[in-house]
Design a protein around this nucleic acid. Structure first.
Lengths: 139, 139
DNA sequence: TCAGAATATGCAACTGAGTTGCATATTTTT
DNA sequence: AAAAATATGCAACTCAGTTGCATATTCTGA
């Protein structure tokens, strides 16, 4: 229920010491409702919210900086954003994109081992995996 | 030596039944020389080639369609292109990007196991891995 | 609880990667 | 060498994402 999600969003914002503004609550709610990566325009237009584009980008920036949100792999020149849960500190879940219908889905139930770089001196802080292929509907 | 690379480029084009044009040879040569993913502007400006932007994009499109070149993960909204060697059919080598200096490097010597999707019906045709962190110079 | 400080928002105008239409040039085929 | 097939270049466009700046909102401390 929406009251519930609002409260959850507000809680997340307070936890991370971010100003608890209407836009941030709204955007977090959208991301809580949607369980998958969304583009800016999808977030802005969610249920006739009609949020301002600049606000959406700036809000997502601050949410990402606070670690509440992750930027997912680009597809067609547009960033995708999603909640940062289901992610370990070093690795986000893989994303699967269907090359036919274009749908992107979070594969929260798979994880690959972290890569090891044989050369000395590298520090890996994050690993992202993208899968491409056909979804069940298109295969 | 450059004659050599030109010949190699021409050979690759003939093999894939692509018209053997000046631009294609030049661009393949750049990619053969550089061993890492390059952006369009880097390719266009390589050694004062001054190739036309549209031509570069279209050439890379055809090279990618022919399987000679791969599009690598986006970084800062710009595609990166590189030769498709060192790649198995299903998996390209991982890319490492330094979050401090921004350098991207191909990790041709690592490879992760292919993900397995437990849900029925998915066909994975390609897996890409991106690593972020600090390079030896910045660590 | 309210003023002032801190921060977020919205608008309009911009940036820059990538694309498209179309006329022309180049490559291949016959 | 001519015709058919394809590639190139230009200019003008699209569209995601950004920036400056004036205004509004949220928080904090007396």
């Amino acid at each position: 229920m929406s009251e519930r999600l609002d409260e959850q969003a507000r809680h997340m914002l307070r936890e991370t010491k971010l100003y608890c503004t209407e836009a941030r609550v709204a955007i977090l709610r959208v991301l809580l409702e949607a369980n998958g990566p969304l583009r800016q325009d999808q977030i802005a237009g969610w249920e006739s919210h009609k949020l301002n584009k600049v606000t959406v980008y700036r809000t997502l920036d601050s949410l990402a900086e606070a670690g509440l949100v992750h930027r997912a792999f680009l597809q067609n020149r547009a960033w995708h954003f999603e909640l940062a849960d289901h992610c370990s500190e070093k690795q986000c879940h893989p994303h699967f994109t269907c090359t036919n219908c274009g749908v992107t889905r979070c594969m929260t139930d798979i994880s690959l081992p972290l890569a090891k770089i044989p050369q000395k001196g590298y520090v890996i802080s994050r690993q992202q995996v993208r899968l491409e292929g056909l979804c069940p509907a298109c295969a």
